[in-house]
Design a protein around this nucleic acid. Structure first.
Lengths: 222, 222
DNA sequence: TAGAACACGTGAACC
DNA sequence: TGGTTCACGTGTTCT
């Protein structure tokens, strides 16, 4: 009903312009002017609509409301960005202790391996005990489905079977990486009684097989 | 130079309206209408200017340019917020919740209970999401026989049954305390989807029962 | 000179 | 019934 009246008005003015030929008026340029102004208005309204579509959905369709809420929303976003980057900086400053390894892993994402296992001996200057050694075992698993719970459970149950290692401490994290895959990282500090035989490479390979098997099974189930 | 012509136009039209008295026209309401429209335009232009002042300083003063660059700037800010909060979440997940050692000692030392479970909500100012909350669950178990592996496994398997909580990070330690008993401490950072019902006390009690049951069984077995 | 941008007053529609 | 918002055509200035 609104569109119809607008079209009516337009045709009416067009008629008037065509009648102007009798009145010997330079309507040729006036018509261009009219059309240009019309185009300009359409373009402006278009921008108004697209801008409104980006604002929080409860916004009024008023032009004034669009402008003011755009202003408010913009300042709000700015404040969010400032606060987030500040918080981010704080977090990154506090991070160094253990996260560099994971950071390296993330940066080394060029490797397409879904599971990586590294085993490094901890040289503890405080207790240079000869009959037992301490190792840090880090397991990183990239997977869509595997949850950290299953991963930790599997590793711990495997560890219980190995009778000359005991768990000192354990740290596990999970976070999103890229589009949809998430990264599970587990770091275990192990005390190894050196009395019996201890094959470092074999142990590491066994852990790798356990985790890879878990990933395969989970992918199969879902 | 522009202002002068505008003022001239205004006075001219005012004169025309006053002449309308002779023509017996109801110009009383027309004048109000005119003034209202004028006010509306001023207000709108004001909003345009204030909006432009918030945009990057190189912006054209065109109304169309203001609208389009506002749109672009807004989407850019949105993307920044999304990326920052994502990065922030990664950092927070990787940050061990170990800043409460003193708090742990206090909670563990005051009570003679062999198992203590504390659940504290993490107020994250960076991601104030309403539909999900973050909790730190700390479980401390004094026992002679129970190894940390069993404790972690039991807690994680219980957690898998609760379907609206997911594990963000996990930290476990064990150390000697006093003569022969050792202390196992597990701290879990949990994300709780607030959609369903969430009884904090019930959850805490359930965890306590699970761990206490584990301790009893292990003592019986050994 | 052509074209873009703006402010203006006015009629109409919606509450 | 007024109050508010909108689209329209037009005149003017700047490039």
């Amino acid at each position: 009903m609104l569109k119809r009246s607008i079209s009516f008005l337009r045709s009416l003015n067009l008629m008037r312009l065509r009648e102007g030929i009798q009145a010997t008026r330079p309507t040729s340029s006036q018509l261009h002017h009219m059309i240009s102004e019309r185009k300009r208005r359409e373009k402006l309204n278009e921008s108004f609509h697209t801008l409104k579509s980006l604002l929080p959905p409860g916004t009024k369709k008023d032009k004034a409301s669009v402008l003011t809420t755009a202003r408010e929303y913009l300042t709000s976003l700015r404040a969010q960005v400032a606060e987030l980057s500040k918080r981010n900086q704080q977090l990154e400053a506090r991070l160094p202790p253990a996260a560099k390894e994971a950071y390296n892993e993330e940066a080394a994402g060029s490797s397409n391996e879904r599971v990586s296992v590294t085993l490094t001996q901890v040289v503890s200057e405080s207790t240079p005990d000869q009959d037992q050694q301490i190792f840090d075992l880090q397991v990183v698993l990239r997977s869509v489905e595997c949850c950290t719970e299953d991963m930790v459970i599997r590793i711990l149950e495997f560890l219980k079977q190995v009778n000359n290692v005991s768990l000192m401490s354990l740290e596990a994290n999970t976070w999103m990486s890229g589009s949809d895959s998430n990264v599970n990282r587990v770091i275990l500090r192990l005390r190894v009684d050196q009395g019996t035989e201890w094959d470092e490479a074999a142990f590491q390979e066994a852990v790798r097989r356990v985790v890879a098997d878990l990933a395969l099974n989970n992918c199969r189930n879902q």
